[in-house]
Every structure is written in C-alpha cells, then in structure tokens.
Write a protein that binds this DNA or RNA. Structure first.
Lengths: 218, 218
DNA sequence: TAGATTGTTAATCGATTAACAATC
DNA sequence: TAGATTGTTAATCGATTAACAATC
C-alpha cells in the first residue's frame, strides 16, 4: 500500500524487536507497550512506534501491541515466514561454529550446504552436512534453491568466494571476513565484522568520561 | 588540542581504514588518496578526509596520505599502540573459534584468559589457554590487567556474565549473545550481532528493486 | 469517564556530501 | 607553472525525538 522507502536503520532494528518479542511470548506475556520495549532494548519508544508504523498499524491505542500478532507481522516483513536456504563457504573454526549453531532454524534460515576450497576437507561431516568442493557450489545453489551465502574464509579469499556466490545466483551475502567486499548490483551484502567492533572498543577505554557515556554520569 | 566529541560512526570506520592501510603497506604502497580509499572501501572521499581531520592533519595537499604514517596515527587514536588484554567467557563453538583466531595479536588485543561456568570444562586447554571456572574471573582480571571482556555464552546467561565482568573491573564488553545488554555507566558495550545481520538480510531478498539497490539499476 | 498508549506530524539533531580555497 | 589533493565550511540529507490529537 505504501511504497515509501524504508531506511536501513529501521530494518536492522526489526530482528532486535523480534527477538525480544519471542522472549515475551515464551513468558506468556500477551501485550507490550513501546515504553516497555524501549526500556528493555535501550531505544526511544517514539522510534519504536515510528519503525513499526512504516509497515502498518499493529498496535491498539491505550493498550499497546499484541505480542504474538506483532511477532507474526515482523516475521512477514522480514520474509521469515518462508524457509530460506543458506550456503556456507569456509570450514575453519568459525564456519564450523556457525554450522553447529542451529539458531537459524527457528527463524527459518538454515545452512543446507557447506563448502571448502581445501580438497582435503571434502567429505568431512559437520553437523550432518558433508563438506563439498567449490566446484559443486553452482549446482547445489540451483538444486537446493539457496538464496543466501555466508563467507567464513580468510580475508584474501573472500572477494573470490563472493564472486562465485554471485555467479551461482545467490542474492544475499553475510561476510565474516575482515575485508570490504565490492558492491554488486542486485546483491545485498551484510558484514559481520567483529574484529572492527573489537578494535573500535579500544578507542573508548579510559576515554569514557570524554565521550557520550558521560551523559549518564551522576 | 581539540576536545570536540567524535561521533560513533567515525570511530567505527577507523578500523576499516586501518585494515586496508595495512594491506597497502604490505604491498609496499607508500601513498594513498582519499579518492583511492573511497573506491576500495565504498565510502565518500570527503567523508574519509573529514573523519581523519577530526584527529589531526595527517595528509599532504596535492599528494595524499603517507600509508605508514597514517597507520601509526590511527593505531594511536584507537589506542592500539599499547597491549590490551582480553578475557573470554563461554567456550562453546564460537568461543573456541575466537580463541583460536589469533588475529588480535597483530593489533595488540589478545585473549589472555578463558572462562566457563561449566565446571566440567575446567582445565581444558584451548589454544594454550587453560579454561578457568567463573570464580577465578575477578582475580585474573586484576592480575593480568584485563580491560575488555568477550561474551560467547547463550543469550539467557549473557547479562549475568556482563554483570560479573563489571564487578571484576572490566570496562569494555564485546557481546556475541543475541540479546541487548542493559547499559551501565562507565562501561562500553559493543554488540557482534550476526544473527540480526542475517535476519535483516532476509528483508532485502527479492525486495531488491523496491529498495535502495535500485539507484544502481541500469 | 479517566488513564493509557498509539500513530503521526513537526522540530531537532546529527551525519553525509559538495564545493572550494589553500597548498604541495 | 599546472595538476592534484587536502582540510574545512556550507549545504544537504536523513534519522531521531518530542509532542499531541485520536482513540482504546
């Protein structure tokens, strides 16, 4: 109904909302206000209401939001209501850790194929998945209808893997390698860049009073 | 000289600059322009110049930036010129993966102690570090001068671990658990939230033409 | 009805980008 | 000197927050 462009910042908050709403649902809490959400998620209530309002009128004035209804709506918005298949390349420590986490299943994203450039790893089992050589990538993507790729290879190989993903028809990439991938038309690339998070953390050590933490000083 | 507040967005880009400059340095490239950096890092050159100018005049007009000098300066800004010790709690797949990565050493951040609430894991070796029980946390933080903590425990335990970090005297936390930690005065918390990155990726699948990727459409 | 809370507009705040004088 | 590129100001753009009428 509204073809208004939604900002990236808004979309990135939706999974945060969803996660907390799932917690509430598990605790059998049926209703939540933007106030409550804001306190728990450290966000401004007005921002939460505005974020949700981009997609529809999900709340009731004077009452708040129905938890299960809002979960359903956010899942629809994020397209988590249908299964999305994922391929992972790079079976080092991190890659294996991600395969073993089955966190995605609940949210209908599932790693269904694992690849490694090292021929020696071919045939290894990781959490019920057999490691495949890179030559198999394109055919697996087609056969299993894989739309998302995860990159957990060393930095110098990441761009090459990304290019192979795109050739194979993958539309979204989550890159864990500490390198900026070149953007490609029609391909969405997200970075899971925890080394950068860690290094920028260093900046704030001892610096605390100079910076914005200071607004909480009592 | 300039006690002007630096925005978080600026600080988060510094490690990205640093990483690419290190690559250039390894390739024996001595000079780089904001133009070059912008192309490789997918950023506006003006933004890069402005970011760097917050901290000093590091470039030369008509020439560009000296790679090694800029590396040194950014390392100083991020406080990576002195060793920073890190503790990690949670020796599941992800925790072990992070311990085995020795990526931090080059940047002078090093995991020097590993903890797990599971008494059964006590004494296990992970990449030359012995897993300690949580009771030892405070004394290790003091003895090894640990200032940063990494959380790789399940979501429901993360806040508890964070509280223990803070009691022990840790000032910065990198949280991998998919939960928002409550903010605490004087404590800097960064989130490495790849589940959120993955879920928000789903939003953009098939949606590509409706959204901002469209500006690249030809 | 009185109290609570949404959806939304307007105001504020902050970040990005363009432009250009300075200068190597 | 001519060409290139910085540092910085001003303009633009976008995101957050405050405020409040609507209404449950």
């Amino acid at each position: 109904m509204k073809p208004i462009k939604i900002s990236e910042a808004v979309v990135r908050r939706l999974p945060i909302y969803l996660r907390f709403l799932n917690e509430l649902s598990l605790s059998s809490i049926q209703t939540v206000s933007s106030q409550d959400l804001g306190e728990k998620l450290d966000l401004n209530p007005a921002q939460i209401r505005k974020d949700l309002a981009y997609f529809g009128e999900f709340g009731r004035k004077g009452v708040g939001y129905n938890v299960d209804y809002l979960i359903e709506k956010i899942r629809q918005i994020l397209k988590l209501d249908k299964m999305m298949n994922v391929a992972l390349v790079g079976t080092g420590n991190l890659g294996r850790a991600l395969c073993n986490y089955n966190m995605y299943i609940k949210d209908n994203m599932k790693i269904v194929a694992v690849f490694d450039a090292d021929q020696g790893k071919k045939g290894t089992l990781i959490n019920h998945l057999t490691v495949q050589p890179m030559q198999e990538l394109a055919s697996f993507v087609k056969q299993l209808d894989i739309s998302v790729g995860i990159i957990t290879v060393p930095a110098q190989e990441a761009q090459n893997v990304a290019d192979q993903f795109v050739s194979a028809g993958i539309k979204g990439i989550l890159n864990f390698a500490p390198v900026v991938l070149k953007s490609m038309p029609g391909i969405r690339i997200h970075h899971a860049d925890f080394t950068a998070e860690l290094l920028s953390l260093a900046y704030y050590m001892d610096n605390i009073n100079v910076n914005k933490e200071g607004d909480e000083a009592q």
